[in-house]
Amino acid sequence: MTQSARLANSYFGEWEIYIVTADPADDWPTHCFGRTSPIPTLAERTAALTGLGYEAADGAAWEWMELPNGDMDTVELLASFDVRLVGEAP
């Protein structure tokens, strides 16, 4: 079963990756990169996902979007990516 990994800026502006699960949001597996810039590299994101026990689902590709904020506000980015538990059959 695939789930969605999300890469976003946390409340404090630091990059974090989390896995959207059926559990309440407080229990979602999360990794904080501890920085506001630069955006975590693909290798860093892959390592973070592995550390959380997840891997890329077949054919997965990061999809980026801008979150609406006002015309003069800082742009907020969100990326999503399909993942599965490490070793789980596709």
Rank of each mutant, 00 (worst) to 15 (best):
M1F: 09
T2K: 13
Q3A: 11
A5K: 05
A5M: 09
R6S: 07
R6W: 10
R6E: 11
R6Y: 12
L7R: 03
L7T: 01
L7D: 02
A8V: 15
A8N: 10
S10F: 00
S10N: 02
S10H: 02
Y11T: 10
G13I: 01
E14H: 14
W15N: 08
Y18A: 10
V20S: 07
V20L: 03
V20M: 08
A22V: 06
D23H: 05
D23R: 11
D23C: 00
P24D: 09
P24G: 01
A25P: 15
D26C: 08
D27Y: 05
P29Y: 01
H31K: 03
H31T: 04
C32M: 01
F33E: 06
S37P: 00
S37I: 04
S37D: 05
P38T: 00
P38S: 05
I39K: 15
I39V: 13
P40V: 06
P40T: 02
T41P: 01
E44V: 06
E44N: 05
E44M: 03
T46S: 10
T46G: 04
A47C: 09
A47S: 13
A48N: 08
L49V: 06
L49K: 02
L52F: 03
Y54C: 05
E55P: 00
A56D: 07
A57D: 05
D58V: 02
G59T: 04
G59F: 01
A60E: 08
A60I: 06
A60V: 08
A61V: 14
W62N: 09
W62A: 05
E63N: 13
E63A: 15
W64L: 09
W64Q: 10
W64A: 07
E66Y: 04
L67V: 13
L67W: 05
L67P: 02
P68A: 10
G70H: 05
M72T: 14
M72F: 12
M72R: 14
M72G: 11
D73Q: 12
D73A: 12
D73S: 12
T74H: 04
E76I: 15
L77D: 02
L78H: 07
A79N: 05
S80P: 00
D82M: 13
D82Q: 14
D82R: 15
V83L: 00
R84I: 14
L85M: 07
V86W: 07
V86R: 13
G87A: 05
E88A: 14
E88K: 10
A89S: 14
